[in-house]
Design a protein around this nucleic acid. Structure first.
Lengths: 209, 209
DNA sequence: TGTACATCAGTGAACGCGCGTTCACTGATGTAC
DNA sequence: TGTACATCAGTGAACGCGCGTTCACTGATGTAC
């Protein structure tokens, strides 16, 4: 790996093909959708023979997993960036939830790849698994802090996190595939309604039972 | 349609092929999953030539839509059956939400077909659209009644329904594809945890804002 | 400093797959007269 | 009551597609000596 990225076009070896394929796959996914994302198409776009990717990934699923992992890393960054300078626990929780929604809306196909059934056995891809866990833990932290601030006990923080995650995820899927469901409500001001809904959730989270 | 279902095997015409295909497609979906559900396979299972289905459905999507519509009709029945003899508005809301979850867990592939992207432009299939709306309206009614019981105003009932639907749907997807996400929490007693989570939601629903 | 050789990262042809759909057809049914 | 004919619901062969993957290969790189 001494000359990574040195030669650009003329050399036989690419030097950085793995990253290039992931990058190209990502942009293909965002522009053309998941259906159009095939090994061959990615190879074509990268200007490389159609079997070259197999030297870097365990079949098609391997490439998909790598793309999804990159997606989770970006989601993590997006979430943490949104949290910057926010101090109030309640605000932080709301922020991290809304950020998730924004991310999903901005990258629907990626979002679908990250969570959908296209990649089976996600746990078997360490890179993907780690990135997903890291992203999830941002939410987890915010929920725990919020619970602590409101009732002093972070006892059922796990369930509460799952509840928050349910809200985020459910709404994200709904907003991402609008033809799915209640069309009336969501015509306009999606983020406003989302905030309203999240507020109800957050309120419910803080109850003592 | 005078002799529907009269002759069984020997006759050239099937007599009830459309229904038979939907039925067969449904069972194929449940046993083998969405990937295995092709026009040809359904035709094969029904004992009919592989092009016969095209006389009854607008291509593959048409068949899928018919199956999904049947799914929504069953979901509707399941929900209303669960509500029978329940009187308290809060209990009724909880019941209808849990019933949704149970249905999804019992028929994961069907659930995925009903809500996933396999059928594009769902609104263009009247049968499907109507069945989906009817099923959704059960939830809508329960939410409205609950709001009325708790605060006397069913003003933001639409948003509240969407919130409840978000909780149902989000959790259903999570429980349906378990490898997705937080594995720790959901090892056991899924319905118990689900109820806990829904309780938080329902509690949040009733807040005055 | 030079050489032999293992290893890695590419190539391109080809296989085999199941699919949705088109096509020209034929058997059965129902209706007009 | 009988006949002609349009229409409907089947058949089966075939087309064309893009795909993931296998295979034998070759060019380039790095390392041991």
């Amino acid at each position: 790996m001494s000359r990574v990225k040195a030669a650009e076009k003329t050399s036989y070896h690419h030097g950085n093909l793995r990253d290039a394929l992931v990058e190209e796959g990502m942009s293909l996914l965002e522009t053309e959708g998941l259906k159009a994302l095939s090994l061959r198409e990615v190879a074509r776009h990268t200007g490389v023979s159609q079997t070259a990717p197999l030297h870097h990934f365990a079949g098609k699923t391997g490439l998909l997993a790598a793309i999804a992992a990159l997606g989770f890393r970006r989601l993590f960054e997006y979430r943490t960036a949104a949290l910057k300078n926010k101090r109030d626990p309640r605000v932080r929780l709301m922020t991290v939830m809304l950020a998730y929604l924004e991310f999903a809306k901005a990258h629907p196909s990626l979002f679908y790849l990250m969570h959908g059934p296209e990649i089976p056995e996600k746990t078997t891809f360490p890179e993907l698994d780690e990135a997903a866990t890291r992203s999830y833990s941002v939410l987890e932290t915010c929920v725990a802090e919020y619970l602590q601030a409101t009732e002093g006990s972070a006892e059922c923080s796990r369930e509460a996190t799952l509840a928050a995650w349910t809200a985020c995820y459910g709404l994200a899927v709904i907003l991402t595939s609008p033809q799915n469901t209640p069309r009336m409500v969501l015509r306009r001001d999606q983020m406003g309604i989302a905030e309203k809904i999240f507020e109800m959730f957050i309120h419910g989270l803080a109850q003592k039972d």
